[in-house]
Design a protein around this nucleic acid. Structure first.
Length: 619
RNA sequence: UGGGGCGUAGCCAAGCGGUAAGGCAACGGGUUUUGGUCCCGUGAUGCGUAGGUUCGAAUCCUGCCGCCCCAGCCA
């Protein structure tokens, strides 16, 4: 359960509210649609929606799509779906979207021109009162059931262009004709001032004319830029006349061929925030040095409404995985994984397919907290959150992944008993089910050792073990493969007096083992997932090496011929189930067929024996 | 050598001048027909470091050390 911890950002929001600087809270989640969302984005989603939720505000989903060459609708669709999934049942009432096709409204505010685009809150699903809700300062509420879409920075290209013109008129921006190489050269170095553009002082009229012709498509890519006139000797390099607009004759996934000039992030972001009435613009630490520019742009214009405030927090890093979109893209493109939604990927879609509940991911984001120091969170915490969420609600079932045949010699041939099994010991309301038991069963290969190591409580020759919900059996003999010497079958006897529920006094058996009746078993494929990398920090690449070299080739293990109890034949893809003593699993959303399920292992159960065994191996 | 940040336990992180929260991990023990869950217990005379201010400092001041970010017409 998310606790809603206090942090320095919430503190700031509270202060702004208390001081009357703002009357409501509007945040935004502004991914660039050039990749799938990952667990690092989930942190930002939880932060921004969490703050909106806590203060009765809203959080706009916005595509930060100012670079046509890297973006694609595939990504806007996946991002939208992932955000909705992640906040479902928690903050959907805070999700700010807008009617499809709606653009900012130009209006007059106290004699000053203003652009504004109000969010429409998506309809709550549960109370039968759908429709939009007008937001503070918003325009007309729209009709019910109207199709909504995310905000797009590219929807603001026209107002942004107007703002740029205004900057030029104020003498705060100019068209520069230097080549990219010249601009680089003249920017100086962190410890050395830059050199002013020779076009810096051309007239307002000339810049205006040139900028209009840039828009009209008169010049080739990179021929000119619009630059802010700030200070070429500023110690902060982002204040050295940064580029505001560049020429790119490229079609855009959302605006098509309407534009051939595109605004840069720094120019577009703060103004997009402003247009949407964002109060708090929360981003990651690397943008901290951009903050003076963010503020300069807003202050350079004569904007009639309150300015958004940018603040920064540390991005999430996690052990045994990579988080950069560039690296994730490579894993996909080079086929190291099956796709963006490969269950081993740290993407939202990958984790969803693997069976991680949204609630668990939110709990994780809550527990890692938000602060400003660089961090490396252990993946074990995420796994803990998944287990904790699943334990009370995942029904239990028995599944044997690596089957070992057991023949119970004194059990009547052809006889079948329906044993009663509890669906979830954590929750009696989940009821019980019947599991068939017969003379030949399968147990896990791991649950039998011909030569048991110390502290091994499971089955071995002459030893007893309890079959969950059934009888105590004793191993009497083994059958070996004459060629390999491997044990291929266990012979055993059962004690009729030990039937589940009627355990005789004084009968102590050290271990209980799961099983599946051979005649009743459902065959299935099961996919086991481990960490994608063999090292804790795969992004920390040694000299001259590539991060893909530390990929773990055994991260996916596909098991076929697994034996499942009959109740598992028909399952809803994605629905969690605990295979007793093994872990949490869910039927794969793509591979499963009725009667022939494919299961993904979401996460293992904690395994005390594995730890003992590991220690024995070391000692 | 410029600017901006950050250093509290293996990891994350509270702390906001009154004597070091919490979670994960780890390690003991109890319960248990899941070696799961649950329950109980164990960790910083110490907060990067050296000084200073103060009755009192993780918190304030100064110096030093370490790590991260910034010189895309990417975001």
């Amino acid at each position: 359960m998310p606790q809603g911890h206090q942090d320095f950002l919430r503190e700031m929001v509270q202060e702004d509210l208390a001081a009357g600087r703002i009357s409501g809270v509007v945040t935004r989640f502004p991914p660039e649609p050039n990749g799938y969302l990952h667990i690092g984005h989930a942190k930002a989603v939880c932060l921004n929606f969490g703050i909106a939720r806590q203060f009765g505000g809203q959080c706009n989903l916005r595509m930060d799509d100012t670079n046509p060459t890297k973006e694609d609708v595939e990504y806007v669709d996946s991002i939208t779906a992932d955000v909705k999934w992640l906040i479902a049942g928690w903050a959907d009432h805070c999700l700010g979207m807008k009617p499809v096709g709606r653009l900012p409204e130009k209006r007059d505010l106290g004699g000053r021109e203003d652009y504004y685009l109000a969010p429409v809150m998506s309809a709550p699903d549960d109370d039968g009162a759908p429709g939009s809700r007008e937001s503070p300062g918003g325009s007309d509420a729209q009709g019910q059931g109207e199709a909504l879409e995310p905000f797009y920075a590219s929807d603001y290209f026209e107002p942004l262009y107007e703002y740029a013109l205004e900057l030029v008129r104020k003498g705060k921006a100019y068209v520069c004709d230097h080549t990219p190489a010249e601009v680089d050269e003249m920017r100086g170095a962190p410890h050395r001032p830059g050199q002013e553009s020779v076009y810096r002082d051309r007239t307002v009229a000339e810049s205006l004319d040139l900028f209009e012709r840039m828009r009209a498509g008169e010049f080739p890519d990179a021929a000119r830029t619009l630059r802010a006139r700030i200070d070429m000797s500023a110690p902060n390099v982002w204040l050295r006349d940064p580029v505001l607009y560049r020429i790119r004759h490229a079609s855009h996934h959302h605006t098509g061929d309407q534009w051939c000039i595109y605004p840069m992030y720094d120019f577009a972001h703060g103004l997009s925030d402003y247009i949407e009435g964002i109060t708090h613009s929360l981003c990651t630490l690397e943008f901290e040095v951009h903050r003076p520019l963010y503020e300069w742009i807003l202050e350079a214009l004569d904007l009639p409404r309150a300015h958004p405030r940018q603040r920064e927090f540390a991005r999430l890093n996690m052990t045994y995985t990579v988080m950069s979109k560039r690296k994730l893209l490579r894993l996909v493109q080079e086929g190291h994984v099956g796709g963006w939604d490969d269950p081993r990927m740290p993407t939202i879609s990958g984790m969803r397919r693997r069976g991680y509940p949204a609630e668990a991911i939110r709990d994780f984001c809550d527990r890692i907290r938000v602060a400003k120091s660089d961090n490396m969170v252990q993946v074990q915490l995420l796994e803990h959150c998944v287990r904790e969420d699943l334990n009370p609600r995942a029904p239990r079932a028995m599944a044997v992944l690596r089957p070992l045949r057991v023949v119970i010699e004194n059990y009547p041939e052809g006889h079948v008993e329906e044993m009663e099994a509890v669906n979830n010991p954590e929750d009696a309301t989940m009821g019980t089910r019947r599991v068939p038991f017969s003379r030949v069963i399968y147990i896990e290969q791991d649950d039998f050792r011909e030569v048991p190591p110390p502290k091994y409580f499971r089955l071995s020759p002459g030893k007893e073990v309890r079959l969950r919900y059934a009888y105590v059996i004793k191993c009497t003999d083994v059958v070996k493969d004459p060629a390999t010497g491997d044990v291929i079958e266990v012979r055993a006897t059962y004690d009729p007096a030990t039937r589940s529920g009627m355990n005789p006094e004084g009968r102590k058996v050290k271990a209980t083992v799961h099983w599946v009746s051979a005649d009743h078993a459902v065959e299935a494929e099961v996919r086991l997932y481990g960490p994608l990398f063999t090292v804790e920090e795969p992004e920390d690449v040694p000299e001259g090496q590539d991060f893909v070299q530390s990929l773990d080739q055994t991260s996916l293990e596909t098991l076929t011929g697994c034996k499942l109890e009959p109740s598992l034949a028909e399952v809803v893809p994605g629905a969690p189930v605990q295979f007793e003593r093994l872990g949490y699993f869910c039927a794969d959303s793509e591979g499963s067929r009725p009667g022939a399920p494919v299961f993904n292992r979401t996460v293992t159960l904690k395994d005390a024996w594995a730890r003992i065994e590991k220690k024995q191996g070391q000692g």
